[in-house]
Design a protein around this nucleic acid. Structure first.
Lengths: 342, 342
DNA sequence: CTGTTAGCGCGTTCAA
DNA sequence: TTGAACGCGCTAACAG
């Protein structure tokens, strides 16, 4: 492998000149520039990353902390982060935290030990005060989830607005008995989507029924969605629509509804959230809020890059979402006689 | 951050001694050992990776080349690789090759430039001769897919054996008109699974019908599976069973079969391959060959580690699979009168 | 604008 | 068995 010394000799200049040209800070005579670039090419020179990092006291690596690298919602975000990191010349080091805060903390010590120049956290729950000391010392961006009480740069969609749109859609279809399947986790997104549900009912002057609101397990499994849906739909005065805060829950709900003999959307209308995949694989195709996962990850990395290079990033970046209306809500609802007034 | 010099001073020894103790090559007096380890702990010393790499002429990183980091089949393998790499103190650098060979080549230059100490390739197609010069110079392991004509360390399942089991299962159920949905790609696994299909029919003295064999797109999409199945099942003397070389194809096939008014498994029996997910989400649950993806990745990293540390790894490592018999084949088939003899 | 030179933190000779 | 000293390849002062 060629080193910077080889290039310098080959081009007949000093190593400092080569370094300057390669890093493009100060001005260099154009003639030398060309000569050096020529040598770089013919020697196939690539800077030795270890030496550069040692000298600059950097690592050239960013940390991605994800709770689960097999969940498609995260993999798309990770792909976006990876692409953006690559464009900036950074490697990304992907870590599975398995939702274990002590593992998160352990990993963040990598920042202290300069084994990483910055970090992107994918799914921190509320109560993220413990992050503050880290965020003050190191470049950290929260992606998709964040804690509004903790002032750390974050990228997300407008969860409240998106959930409100979904609810308005159900109300516009004529539904008055709308159920909710949320989750036991402590993500801010869960709080916002749930609040949007209650607020929308309030605005429509519909009395909230606590027996219409169910909570699935923290990780949005298909099975928990189907279990909760089954119990909600078993009530005598059952909901005619279900708003689910995640697609997997919605798919589970459809499965239960069908098994119970209900037609979707005619008897029960179901709406999901995320649009990450499989929403258009089985009929009825799922109505859901589409999140641009790849772009969310990509933008998060852009913010992190600003942070690392000393520029001022946006404290909050909101990425556009889109309500995708499909088969699972393709039915204008009219109270059947047996249901009476809600 | 504490450096090795700080530790040496704190323990009252030379840096060389600290280095020796930390790397455990040569013998050191036990008393000093303890003193140094104490200092390491109280100073929270961690070796500077960049300096170590510069000195050792290594990178501490391994490359993972995957065609698509959002496909669940790969994400589970990647998780396995990542865990094993972490255990050996390596970082893993995940790259999306998007099935582009020039991108693969470009990435492998990282090995030459010592930006990576080894590589695991996840989905090389047949015709992998171009890899030979790289594999002679650098530690490379092929994971899940490989080219039998190219002698590179690889980890895989017994695709021929597994597909044979699946076929024997269909034959044991009484099926004589068995269709195949394979793929246009050039993976060795595709070749083997297809060969197992033809060989099993031969052994059972069943005449092969070319109109029963269809090819889906190279990346196993749900839609292509459903398209091919529709065409296979539209024939007058349609197949009574379909062997699909991937789960997504099988799920697509089930969807088409249902839309065409066939019951699964009563009218059409369907078997998939991989068991990566969603095989037990919608009824009928899919009969399929289960691959231990995480373990395949984990073992691939173990082999790579052997290669990197100069030990002799197994040229070929075959991981056990398991045929999971579920609802989509839960039916003993008897020729209905209208079908006649095949 | 360009060259000379001093480390960055570590592992590894070579002496003792 | 231990320590002193060199140099890995690079960047950033400092001189010129």
């Amino acid at each position: 492998m060629a080193t910077i010394v080889d290039v310098a000799k080959h081009a007949g200049v000093s190593v400092a000149t080569v370094s300057r040209i390669l890093n493009g800070k100060t001005k260099v005579r154009e003639e030398l520039r060309l000569r050096v670039m020529d040598s770089v090419k013919s020697l196939e020179y690539t800077p030795n990353a270890a030496a550069r990092n040692l000298r600059r006291n950097e690592s050239g690596t960013i940390l991605i902390l994800a709770p689960n690298i097999t969940n498609p919602y995260y993999t798309h975000i990770i792909a976006g982060i990876g692409d953006a990191a690559h464009e900036h010349g950074y490697s990304s080091f992907l870590c599975n935290t398995a939702n274990d805060r002590s593992r998160e903390k352990e990993l963040l010590t990598r920042l202290e030990h300069q084994q990483a120049d910055g970090a992107i956290l994918l799914a921190t729950e509320l109560g993220a005060e413990w992050l503050i000391p880290y965020a003050q010392k190191f470049p950290i961006v929260q992606c998709s989830e964040f804690d509004p009480k903790v002032d750390i740069v974050h990228v997300s969609i407008d969860n409240y607005g998106a959930a409100t749109e979904a609810m308005e859609h159900l109300l516009a279809l004529g539904h008055k008995r709308i159920g909710l399947i949320s989750s036991l986790n402590h993500y801010y997104s869960t709080v916002l989507r749930t609040k949007a549900y209650y607020d929308a009912l309030d605005r429509a002057n519909i009395t909230v029924r606590e027996e219409y609101a169910g909570k699935a397990t923290f990780d949005y499994t298909f099975k928990s969605g189907s279990d909760v849906a089954r119990s909600l739909l078993s009530q005598e005065a059952r909901p005619t629509a279900l708003f689910c805060i995640s697609d997997m829950l919605a798919l589970g709900a459809i499965s239960s509804a069908k098994e119970m003999g209900f037609r979707v959307p005619e008897d029960v209308t179901i709406v999901g959230f995320d649009d990450v995949e499989h929403t258009m694989m089985f009929h009825p195709y799922l109505t859901t809020v589409s999140q641009p996962c790849f772009d969310i990850g990509y933008q998060a990395m852009q913010q992190l890059f600003r942070l690392m290079s000393g520029e001022e990033p946006a404290r909050e970046l909101i990425i556009p979402h889109k309500l995708e209306i499909r088969e699972s809500s393709a039915h204008r609802y009219l109270d059947p006689p047996w249901i009476g007034q809600p």
